[in-house]
Amino acid sequence: MARKADLLQGSLDLLILKTLDLEALHGWAISKRIQLLSSGVLEVNQGSLYPALYRMRDRGLIESEWAHTDEGRRVKTYRLTRKGRETLASERAGWRLFADAVDAVLSAT
């Protein structure tokens, strides 16, 4: 099993935004997708996903709707709003800047 990394403060929102940028997903799928995309390195604390989802919905970054699974089960799925897409773009740029800066410091010899 690969080593796991704790999520950096505030990065959960960014990850959720990115995941939903591809397609609308329900809560469980979001957590799995993050795990998958990070090759299992990033593991979302599943419980803390939901407060984050509700907070982002209230801020208007994502919206939710009830859909049905193939088995006919009612499930709440989330998708990005336009505001969410804009936020994702700016947050992504911010993250890049931050990561490059940290990288630069760490790789200084």
Partner: peptide
């Protein structure tokens, strides 16, 4: 276990809201 306390997160959701 992976999820953590259901009630705790529910409370957190309520708080957020």
């Amino acid at each position: 276990v992976t999820f953590g306390g259901v009630e705790r997160y529910k409370e957190e959701v309520r708080d957020v809201r």
